[in-house]
């Protein structure tokens, strides 16, 4: 009954026999496959053929190599990893995640710093710039005072107390005829200023410096000068001067990230064009 057997075999799963040969069956499939191999001559022959072919494949004769593959000095020089900027760029570019991280960092730095500066610190920055523009002569002195954590305290010209104001800069040094810039440590030790410190310290913020510089007195803004911020307004933080630096740094990081991501692609394309 060969025809009946062949017809039977047509319904058999040959892939299951191949999987049995490759030991890629679970217990149920193994039982079914072994049943086929035992009960069907075609399946049995298939299983035997798969074994014979695999054995013959493994025994395919080895060809001798037509030449040696040792590298010459020229090959080595051509293939040696380059240490130039281009090679470094390529190496960085291979690490796409690194480039992506740089781009994300730079972009978020730009966005966050811009948003913060627009929401809170931009006016202060502007007034700071205006101060610098209006009183370039006092800029250095007042900046010095800020950097020391002190407060610019105006003082009448008639009350010179250079010997009592420890750490203060004299009128000559500061260039301000009507006052001087004193460090905060000098305030309590100056009797002449006794009535003033409470108001001066409470009301005078660094943003008032331009008014003082323009010749006014504490708490009295000069006409035409920017309005004085109230005592409880957000003070101008010394850190806000870092905003442009943070922005510039973020931009640099962003550009570096983009270069790491896109540089190798552009280089590869240009190489491909050159080859063509």
């Amino acid at each position: 009954m060969p025809n009946a057997a062949a017809a039977d075999h047509a319904t058999h799963d040959e892939l299951l026999i191949a999987r049995l040969y490759g030991d890629d069956v679970d217990d149920r499939e193994r039982a079914r496959a072994l049943e086929l191999v035992a009960g069907c001559d075609e399946c049995s022959a298939l299983y035997a053929d798969l074994g014979a072919i695999a054995k013959a494949t493994a025994a395919l004769p080895v060809q001798s190599r037509p030449r040696g593959f040792a590298l010459t000095e020229d090959d080595a020089a051509r293939l040696r990893p380059r240490r130039g900027v281009r090679a470094r760029l390529l190496a960085i570019g291979r690490r796409r995640s690194f480039g992506g991280a740089l781009v994300a960092l730079g972009f978020s730095g730009l966005v966050l710093t811009s948003a913060l500066s627009m929401l809170g610190t931009a006016p202060t920055l502007m007034s700071s710039n205006a101060r610098n523009a209006a009183a370039p002569a006092v800029g250095a002195a007042s900046s010095n005072a800020y950097s020391q954590g002190g407060v610019a305290i105006p003082e009448p010209a008639a009350t010179p107390a250079p010997d009592k104001a420890i750490g203060s800069t004299g009128p000559t040094a500061s260039g301000i005829p009507g006052g001087e810039v004193a460090s905060s440590s000098a305030v309590p030790s100056t009797p002449a200023l006794a009535p003033q410190p409470s108001t001066a310290l409470d009301q005078t913020t660094p943003t008032e410096a331009p008014a003082v510089a323009a010749g006014g007195t504490a708490g009295e803004p000069t006409p035409g000068s920017p309005p004085v911020a109230p005592w409880n307004a957000t003070p101008s933080q010394p850190g806000s001067d870092w905003t442009p630096l943070v922005l510039a740094g973020s931009a640099i990081v962003l550009v570096l990230g983009l270069a790491a991501l896109l540089g190798p692609i552009i280089l590869r394309r240009s190489r491909g064009r050159a080859r063509r």
């Binding site: 040959e14 892939l15 191949a18 999987r19 040969y21 490759g22 890629d24 053929d49 798969l50 072919i53």
Partner: peptide, 23 residues
């Protein structure tokens, strides 16, 4: 696994005229 199993079956099919060489 799939490539190996199917490839073996295809190989056997391609070798059908020369099957006796392997038997």
């Amino acid at each position: 696994k799939s490539r190996i199993h199917r490839g073996r079956l295809a190989l056997r099919h391609a070798l059908a005229p020369d099957r006796e060489l392997f038997r």
